[in-house]
Computed example of a mutant assay.
Amino acid sequence: MNNYRPFAGMTPAVKVIIIINVIIFLLINTVGQKLNLDLVNILGMHLPQSPDFKIYQYITHMFTQQGLAHLFFNMFAVFMFGRILESVWGTKRFVIYYFVTGLGAAALHSLVSWYGVHNMQEQFYAFQSTPEPGLLAEFVRAHVSNPKFVSYAMQIVDQWNQYPSNTQFAQMGEEIFKNIIQAYQNTPTIGASGAVFGILLAFGMLFPNTELFLMFIPIPIKAKYFVLLYGAAELFFGLQNSVGDNVAHFAHLGGMLFGFFLILYWRKHSKRFY
């Protein structure tokens, strides 16, 4: 047991990334809970429209994982693929790549989310101009997955249809609109997934013909095809924008997109891009 080295085979930056993520995960689920301190809200990335927004969250959200499965799968990917990239590129270039893809993912996610908030506000203004129970019902179904809240809102819609001249229902509808928009704005985004998808993209570009064996695919698949399939899936689900889908699909795409252009830049401006 004296020769046991838990971090054997890890490259320096990968080791530090995993350690930081594990420490923050433990703080969230121990100290944070005991002190009733919402570290996810403090460290997670908020939209600029949110009163909880802080500029440092663009960095801290990348090291914040709340659930054990979330932590494990992200860090497993960093360990499996990140150490190979760091060995090829060197620590400095790998760290640059990790932060560029992570911040790029955050930027694209923020832009898409800002557009989403803008559309929600436009729908709210339309409702204020012409309050109708149908508009309220449509908005709730499009943006709310909580069954209790949906049931509450639909009860108001039903009562409003029965008593259309009662102006109190329009006021209640406005409050529902505001609550949904505020909840959307104030929900933090956490996780290293943007940088992780950047790592997957880089691995696919550097080692395109390497065969991967995945749990959910019973046959080996080349890295380049795996990356293309994953990217296509993220684009599809991102455009679907399904109610209750809490995955930041465009953040994943942002990590891949910024990683792609950074690798192209290195290839063009370096004798050996790595």
Rank of each mutant, 00 (worst) to 15 (best):
Q121M: 07
L111A: 07
P131A: 13
Q171G: 15
H143I: 02
L85Q: 04
S110R: 03
Y115W: 07
M75L: 04
S145M: 03
E122G: 05
S151G: 05
M172F: 14
N161L: 15
Q168H: 14
T167W: 08
W160H: 15
Q65W: 02
V117Y: 07
A137F: 06
R83H: 02
W114S: 05
F81K: 03
F124A: 10
G134S: 10
F63I: 08
I55N: 11
F81N: 03
T101A: 01
Q65I: 06
G82Q: 03
F127C: 12
L71I: 06
I59E: 09
F127G: 12
Q123G: 08
F79R: 08
L111E: 01
D158Q: 15
A142P: 06
A77F: 08
P147M: 06
G116T: 08
F81V: 10
A107R: 01
Y152E: 13
G116E: 05
W114F: 03
L103T: 01
G104Q: 01
Y97C: 03
R141Y: 08
L108V: 10
M154H: 08
Y115Q: 10
N146V: 08
L71M: 09
Q171L: 15
Y97T: 02
E132Q: 14
Q171A: 13
I156E: 09
T167E: 14
Q123T: 08
T130K: 13
I156Q: 13
M120T: 05
I59Y: 13
S165F: 13
N166Y: 09
V112D: 01
K148H: 07
F127W: 12
F72N: 05
Y115N: 11
S151M: 07
H70S: 12
